[in-house]
Nucleic acid binder design. Sequence first.
DNA 1: ACATTAAGTGATT
DNA 2: AATCACTTAATGT
Length: 209
Amino acid sequence: MEALQESYGYLFETELLQEIASVGKLRKVGRGHQIMDIGETITHMPLLLNGAIKILREDENGDELLLYFLERGDSCAMTFSCCMGTKKSEIRAIAEADTELVMVPVEKMNLWMGKYQSWQEFVLNSYHIRMMELLETVDTLAFMKMDERLLKHLQDKCMVNHDEVVQTTHQDIANDLNTSRVVVSRLLKKLENEDKIEMHRNHIKVLDL
DNA sequence: ACATTAAGTGATT
DNA sequence: AATCACTTAATGT
């Protein structure tokens, strides 16, 4: 597990890295695959090595809303709190790109909290970062109009995929933003007229980054 | 050639 | 901004 060293070497001492390597299982997930669903019991916590994962929330009707992306060096804050009592996931996680992650059993969480201060810092820090990300999306939701949200979403996608070309359909975007496809199509056309994007079938190139 | 899926359009609320 | 109803375009079998 040299990949561990590369992604987390600057955070954890070698002793902890070795423990992660010995107890964790490497998992590869293809783009679009579901990693965790709402209501599922959390047994492992993920440490992202590369790729990206999108975190979604769902309403009563089954409509989805994108909360944020996880990238390399991130972990799911949901798993942290689950070890403090709650055991079911409140969110759904789907691979945004082909992703490699290390799955660590949750039992190790508390153990390492006392044993390694680098682990404790990592957990607390991750929690803080997730909180800030969540606040940002709340702001976006509450204060931004659909066209601004759309552009931001495309830019975010570019960010996590390290590519100015977004592989997606209008329908997919509509699902992520919890709006209708027709609205997305029309707003995208507007963005194209403003030379902020280029539209093609099944992919969009973002010019305004 | 036909069916399916993605995207575009006008009208209405 | 959402929804409906319909058209057009691209792609798969």
